[in-house]
C-alpha cells in the first residue's frame, strides 16, 4: 500500500526553485532514504511530506499521521525526558523509556543528556505516538561516528519490532546504503530525482554485503563524487 504519493511536486521560495516536478511513492513499512548534495532541498522535501509546507505545484497524498525527527533541537528543553515522550503518547511513556534504555534518565532535561540520548528521546517520542509515517531529517548527523553507527542499529532493530513507513534524509551515503530499502538520489537545486536504487533485502547491512558497495559507487557517480 502506498503511504505517500507525490505527483509532479514542485516548491519555490518566490523566484527560487527548490524542488522540481518530483514523482515519488513510499510503500507501507518501507525505509526510503533520500540523499543529495548539501542545500539541494532534502529538508524542504520532508517539510512538504510532513505537511509543514504546501507544495507550489503538484499534489501530495499521505495516508496517516506523520512525525518528524530533527537533526537536533526538536525536543522541548523545558520538559523532562518523560514529559517529552508523554507528548507523543502519555500512555506509552514507561514502555518507550524501557525500549530506548532511558528509564534512569526519565526526569533529566534534554540539555543534561548526550547527543545520542537526545536522539533516542526524539525517536521514542515519535514512535510512542504510533503514527504511521516517520520523517527523519538527518537525525544522526550531529552525532559522533560511533554513536551514529549505534543509533542506526537501534533504529533498524526498533523498526523490525514496530514497523513504520520511514523517509530518512541524509547526506551520508554509507548510512543510506546500509539501512535503506530504497535510496532516492536528488540532484542539485531545484531538486528532482536523478536515480532510484533498490537495495538487497535486510537492513543494517555490512559495508561488504552484496550490492552495498555497488550502490554506494552508483550514488557517488550520480553526485559527481566518484
Amino acid at each position: 500500500m502506498e503511504m505517500i504519493e507525490c505527483k509532479g511536486v514542485g516548491f519555490s521560495y518566490g523566484a527560487l526553485g527548490v524542488i522540481e516536478s518530483l514523482d515519488l511513492t513510499v510503500e507501507k513499512d518501507e525505509l526510503l532514504v533520500c540523499v543529495g548534495p548539501s542545500g539541494c532541498g532534502k529538508s524542504t522535501l520532508l517539510s512538504l511530506l510532513g505537511g509543514h509546507l504546501p507544495p507550489t505545484r503538484g499534489t501530495i497524498e499521505r495516508r496517516g499521521q506523520s512525525r518528524t525527527i530533527y537533526q537536533d533541537g526538536g525536543l522541548f528543553p523545558w520538559l523532562t525526558v518523560r514529559e517529552n515522550i508523554a507528548l507523543g503518547n502519555p500512555k506509552k511513556v514507561g514502555e518507550w523509556l524501557e525500549i530506548t534504555r532511558l528509564t534512569e534518565f526519565a526526569d533529566a532535561y534534554p540539555h543534561q543528556l548526550s547527543g545520542g540520548m537526545r536522539q533516542r528521546v526524539e525517536l521514542a517520542r515519535a514512535l510512542a505516538a504510533e503514527t504511521d509515517i516517520l520523517l527523519m531529517d538527518e537525525p544522526f548527523s550531529a552525532l559522533d561516528y560511533q554513536t551514529r553507527r549505534r543509533m542506526r542499529r537501534e533504529l533498524v532493530a526498533t523498526l523490525a519490532e514496530r514497523p513504520r513507513t520511514v523517509v530518512f534524509v541524509t547526506h551520508d551515503i554509507e548510512e543510506a546504503v546500509q539501512i535503506g530499502d530504497r535510496v532516492v538520489v536528488l540532484g542539485m537545486r531545484p531538486a528532482s530525482i536523478r536515480r532510484t536504487l533498490e537495495l538487497p533485502p535486510g537492513r543494517s547491512r555490512a559495508p561488504a554485503a552484496p550490492g552495498v558497495a555497488d550502490a554506494e559507487q552508483a550514488i557517488m557517480e550520480e553526485l559527481g563524487l566518484a
Binding site: 517539510s47 505537511g51 509543514h52 512525525r67 518528524t68 533541537g73 526538536g74
Partner: peptide, 9 residues
C-alpha cells in the same frame, strides 16, 4: 522547529 513539532503534536 518547536512550532513544527507542535504542529505534529
Amino acid at each position: 522547529v518547536y512550532y513544527r513539532v507542535g504542529e505534529d503534536l
